[in-house]
Design a protein around this nucleic acid. Structure first.
Lengths: 146, 146
DNA sequence: ATCGATGCAAACCTTTTGCATGCAG
DNA sequence: CTGCATGCAAAAGGTTTGCATCGAT
């Protein structure tokens, strides 16, 4: 079994939240597509295809819960939806968003440590997490312009 | 008169948008509170206090317009609202968001250049803009915990 | 058996839109 | 004058909530 799945189950149980079928199914989707982010509607569609009929309200309630528990990260890309993705400490990544084709490219951030350290010292602010989005033109779109 | 105000007027006129009283008043609010961000409702309240009765729909339409024209930046802090702030090239700043008291601290980013350069090379992605949010505990809240 | 979790539908709330009127160019 | 911009109210659309029922512990 997935180590992360066990970890998340423990987080729920430790805080006296019940391990319902619905919660397990939602987590399984995120764990299958590790780096991907979903909004409530997208999750609902994926679960329907798996013949898991979970009400939208339940999905919303649990996305919010998982976010509060630190299991999921809440993202937004300035459209109408809230997106969520796994909050895995071992795989911190961010997004390059193409302003031409809306493609989203994930990248890892190892080089950010020093930058954060300086900020913490300067503002007396203890950084726990960050969300970084770079907007620009992706390789493909730049190529098509030529 | 404010140099930026003239610049924004020129952007509108050059693209054949009309210089209405409402547009000028909205821009004036942003130019008065240079570093601050507002959502539509907050702007409406500020304008009401100035006895400028501008319809909410007009505010929404113009925030969107100014965003498309590059005059305003669109932000979000994972609540229900969209926020906007001046997009001044000379004063690029970002946000430290306290996860305890929701206080938002602005900081400038001069040290980000190298980081971006590396990303561009690695992914063939031409970066035009970025939005960076650091979540953590601010000085005040850290102090109160002790 | 208890009480938190779910499902459904209705309510909510921010944002968008249609349409008649107003005003910048 | 002409047609874009505004204001109002209504609609849209994502998210939240109330309540009866279900099911994890």
């Amino acid at each position: 079994m997935d180590k992360n799945f066990e970890k998340f189950k423990k987080i729920l149980v430790d805080k006296d939240y019940r391990l319902t079928e619905q919660r397990k199914e939602i987590l399984k989707v995120f764990l299958k597509y590790k780096e991907k982010h979903f909004n409530a509607e997208e999750l609902s569609d994926i679960l329907k295809k798996r013949d898991e009929n979970i009400g939208l309200a339940t999905i919303y309630r649990n996305l919010e819960l998982f976010h509060r528990l630190g299991i999921l990260k809440q993202l937004d890309f300035n459209d109408a939806f809230k997106y969520y993705e796994l909050n895995l400490i071992e795989k911190h990544h961010h997004h390059l968003i193409c302003i031409n084709c809306d493609r989203i490219i994930e990248f890892n951030d190892e080089a950010l440590g020093d930058f954060e350290k300086n900020l913490e010292d300067e503002y007396g602010f203890k950084i726990k997490d960050h969300i970084i989005k770079f907007y620009g033109v992706c390789k493909k779109c730049a190529g098509e312009d030529e």
